[in-house]
Write a protein that binds this DNA or RNA. Structure first.
Length: 563
RNA sequence: GCGCCUGUAGCUCAGUUGGAUAGAGCAACGGACUUCUAAUCCGUGUGCCAGGGGUUCGACUCCCUUCAGGCGCACCA
């Protein structure tokens, strides 16, 4: 039973306002002593032609009292509701425990598919911190939608196409050393690629050679294709190591090259609709009616460009998956490109263009460029992971040296710290990278929430068998009630995170829940309390650890059993 | 020049989509471990919500404008 909904019904019954509208207006009072739910009467004032505080008073009298609403009280223009706490506590905890890891799920996504494109690194280029932020964000968004019942598909749109690969083939044929490449593929490939650029400055004919190999690649020359496949495989192997660390698996690695043969159709469609226009030798789609710069489709040299590939990919995906929504988790800096490309889809008559959403992720910046990296001037994902895990191991060795599976725990906690930091704030804001923030394991942090979970788990373990049907009326303190209230918010939190495409909403929620539990934990004994109280508190603890576990997992943060 | 984003406590950021006295963490200081894991908890302060107009019962929130910072503006992705 949903208390908020029940109260909305009651209000709707005694006013002319629809239930949905009431629900929308309802809020939580700023102070707990003011009540559990509040209904502002200001909007009714216009219709009823009465002062809001008068209306609140009248409604307070009329509201039906029962085992849900204990008291309704007017406070200025607000009508405040006090629910039957005992009943509320019972409902919430039982629901959490019964539903287990399904708690907070919904059927809103039933039968609907949501595509999530994220990560999308480039072949033979290092995976840097920007990719990491993007990967972590996309992963969380996918999990959130999945929890709401959507079928989700994780797409890794690998950057594996373009003249750069012709250059790489050329570089490889000149300076490639398989033995060295096997050891550290991405860095070595990057090295020879950079060398190619340096040499090309001295000898411009190299550029032609690069273009030639790309042409061979496009024409399907076996040798060029074989090399390209080799680079792709080596790179993917590296990327997958990192994905494994973060427990991420993609459903598709179809990259740019996959769509290379699907572009002629796009061009046909645009031609048919009379959308292509010649401009300075290039073919563009004019977007003036959207107040946007034109979108380039074919370059003046006849080659296609990324917008063309994105169009081909979108059409292919609609056909293949018949998506309800197609999310592009890509950096904020590319906002314009997505506006343009979605607009072209719309002009081409694809009404599902509105179901395509660019979820713009934060730009990572450095307060002091020199301190950006411990080694160089960019930060690689691996570097961040290694630092975080190492720092965690140090802490474990001082705080809990006898811990089992130290390495495993250090990994979960270190990664947790990274994920938490990247999903801490809304994505319109840039992330100012600092090692201090990243490696701070106190206060609002991943380890803080994991620690709260571990403490709860530890108690449950010590308790052994717990009463399946405890008398929850023994949960009488304010700390306990606040904790239960927090548990009750979970469902709308997940919904909100999905509606806003913002994982940080979940992040704040688990933090608040952990805070409430820590407060409770520090002031009230559990195992040593008298039997009835102990049983009730164990049930509460079980519910809290369950929701912390779900919430953290939605973010991609794993939960150790001890730390 | 145009477009988008940001501006809230010393720092990093929330602020339930227009509601009640604007909140957290960090940093500083003080307190709580022979007691369920102190990676914890409790206590002590701070605000021209960038500035100026407007909209209305009511604005950190919406509109206009100024200032400051960031990102982006076709042959890279």
């Amino acid at each position: 039973m949903d208390f908020k909904l029940e109260i909305a019904k009651k209000i709707s019954n005694i006013t002319d306002m629809e239930e949905a509208k009431v629900l929308d207006l309802m809020e939580i009072p700023p102070q707990p002593n003011m009540g559990d739910y509040a209904f502002p009467c200001f909007q009714l004032a216009k219709v009823m032609r009465k002062a809001p505080n008068m209306i609140a008073k009248e409604l307070a009298e009329k509201v039906e009292k029962d085992n849900i609403v204990e008291k309704a009280e007017a406070a200025g223009g607000y009508l405040n509701f006090f629910v039957n706490k005992e009943e509320f506590i019972k409902q919430v905890i039982n629901q959490v425990i019964e539903q287990g890891d399904k708690y907070g799920t919904s059927d809103e996504g039933e039968g609907k598919t949501v595509l999530v494109e994220f990560s999308s690194p480039n072949i033979a280029k290092p995976f840097h911190i920007g990719h990491l932020v993007n990967t972590i964000t996309g992963n969380a968004i996918e999990k959130i939608f999945k929890h709401l019942g959507y079928k989700t598909v994780k797409l890794n749109h690998i950057g594996d196409y373009g003249t750069q690969f012709g250059k790489l083939i050329s570089a490889y044929k000149r300076w490639g050393d398989d033995e060295v490449i096997e050891k550290d593929p991405i860095n070595e490939l990057l090295k020879i690629y950079v060398k190619f650029h340096d040499e090309a400055e001295k000898d411009p004919s190299l550029e032609n050679e690069g273009r030639m190999y790309f042409k061979q690649l496009e024409d399907g020359e076996p040798e060029a294709v074989a090399l390209w496949e080799k680079f792709r495989e080596l790179s993917l192997k590296e990327f997958k190591k990192l994905y494994k660390d973060f427990n991420i698996e993609f459903d598709s690695y179809a990259g740019e090259s996959f769509y290379s043969d699907k572009m002629p159709e796009v061009i046909e469609i645009l031609k048919d609709k009379n959308l292509l226009k010649e401009s300075n030798g290039a073919q563009i789609v004019d977007l003036e009616q959207f107040n946007l710069p034109p979108c380039m489709i074919i370059k003046s040299d006849g080659a296609t460009i990324y917008a063309t590939r994105d169009l081909a990919a979108a059409i292919y995906r609609k056909r293949t998956y018949d998506f309800f929504k197609s999310l592009y988790v890509v950096g904020n800096t590319q906002a314009l490109h997505f506006k343009q490309f979605f607009s072209v889809l719309k002009l081409a008559g694809f009404d599902w263009a509105d179901d395509c959403v660019h979820v713009g992720t934060s730009l990572v910046k450095f307060a002091d460029r020199k301190l950006a990296s411990r080694k160089g001037d960019v930060i690689y994902a691996k570097e961040v992971v290694d630092e975080a895990v190492e720092k965690t191991l140090e802490i474990i060795n001082t705080k809990n040296p006898n811990l089992e599976n130290k390495e495993d725990v250090a990994k979960k906690v270190g990664m947790g710290a990274i994920i938490y930091t990247f999903l801490k704030n809304n994505m319109d804001r840039d992330i100012i990278f600092s090692w201090e923030d990243m490696l701070s394991f106190e206060g609002e942090s991943g380890p803080y929430v994991q620690y709260s979970y571990v403490r709860g788990k530890s108690i449950l373990k010590k308790a052994g068998n717990i009463d399946e049907n405890p008398d929850l009326s023994y949960l009488k303190t304010e700390d306990e009630y606040n904790l239960v209230k927090q548990l009750g918010f979970f469902k709308e939190t997940v919904k909100q995170a999905a509606d806003r495409y913002e994982p940080f909403v979940i992040n704040r929620y688990v933090t608040d829940l952990a805070k409430a539990y820590n407060k409770f934990y520090n002031t009230h004994p559990i195992l040593t309390a008298e039997k009835e109280v102990r049983d009730a508190r164990l049930a509460l603890t079980k519910a809290v650890t369950n929701v912390l576990d779900i919430g953290l997992n939605l973010l991609g943060i794993q939960t150790p059993e001890s730390m």
